[in-house]
């Protein structure tokens, strides 16, 4: 459901401290108050010393995706704006699944340009950006098609791209300080949840986000400069989890089946080697095989 927010108040703030916002960002900021029947948000618009793009922060919200749409609807969210939240009540994953969002992790939604160069642009570019950003920070990650970020084969992050009439929002969640408990394994989730802290990586959500944003900007710039799409596909394929391994594929229609994952297709679909030959799917999900 879309939120029909209205902005009721704007105030300018002075320096203060906030537990999750780095001091560098707190030199000057404004607050907006958005409200509708359901909720009221006090949204901090931060002056981002690293980039010109608008950066919002809230302590909590239903989900950064919803908030981003609200900010967009009230004309506060130009291209490349992003909103971070320390916590989400109803963090949203794919297909309205709940993304458990305890404080300490990165929850952010960013508005991306809608380059309709093959519709797979946004989700894959975002995944590649996250993978490369983590790489820059010394973390080896894998990309589990279509939306998951893995480290040591544990799911530490996810991406959701939502589109409404030409406007594209990418939501990114990365577990830094904690992950949902093992009881999440009791349902059909095929991978254990993990968080970067368990391997000794200590990162703040803001630092991670700025690195990712940097990568995103760089990738999109290369794309609009005329870089071949296939270059991005190749880069993403290198980071692909389960490549050349036997997996179970769940197609959008029909029963799941065994296959070997061979790579990415030019449109960003997944290439599988099945008994009926090479097949490409544009949607579906992957499960690893259990030994």
């Amino acid at each position: 459901m879309m939120d029909n927010h209205s902005v009721t108040k704007k105030t300018k703030g002075q320096s203060l401290s906030h537990k999750s916002i780095p001091p560098a960002f707190l030199s000057s900021w404004t607050t907006l108050t958005l409200s509708n029947d359901q909720e009221t948000h006090t949204v901090r618009k931060l002056d981002n010393p690293h980039t010109d793009h608008v950066l919002f922060h809230v302590d909590t919200c239903l989900s950064t995706m919803n908030l981003a749409w609200s900010l967009f609807e009230t004309d506060h969210f130009p291209l490349w704006s992003s909103v971070l939240s320390d916590h989400q009540y109803q963090g949203r994953g794919q297909f309205n699944r709940l993304w458990i969002s305890e404080p300490g992790n990165l929850y952010v939604t960013v508005r991306l340009p809608d380059l309709t160069k093959g519709q797979a642009t946004a989700p894959l570019m975002t995944a590649l950006a996250v993978n490369q950003a983590l790489g820059r920070l010394g973390i080896d990650s894998e990309f589990k098609w279509p939306n998951d970020i893995l480290v040591h084969r544990k799911k530490i992050g996810g991406i959701l791209v939502e589109q409404r009439t030409g406007t594209v929002m990418a939501g990114i969640g990365v577990n830094l300080a904690s992950a949902p408990s093992m009881s999440a394994m009791r349902d059909t989730s095929p991978l254990s949840p993990g968080f970067l802290g368990e391997w000794g990586f200590s990162l703040s959500p803001f630092d991670l986000w700025l690195t990712i944003l940097d990568e995103l900007l760089s990738l999109f710039a290369q794309l609009s400069d005329g870089m071949e799409w296939s270059v991005f596909i190749t880069a993403l394929e290198k980071a692909m989890a389960f490549k050349d391994e036997k997996i179970v594929f769940i197609p959008p229609q029909g029963p799941e089946f065994s296959a070997v994952l061979t790579g990415l297709s030019p449109e960003g679909g997944i290439c599988l080697q099945t008994v009926d030959g090479e097949k490409t799917f544009l949607s579906g999900s992957i499960l690893p095989v259990v030994h």
Partner: peptide, 18 residues
């Protein structure tokens, strides 16, 4: 008007239709 009616997934993007 403006309410989400359904959602379609197209190559990993979710498209809300209002």
């Amino acid at each position: 008007k403006g309410e989400e009616l359904f959602n379609i997934t197209i190559m990993k993007q979710e498209k809300a239709v209002i």
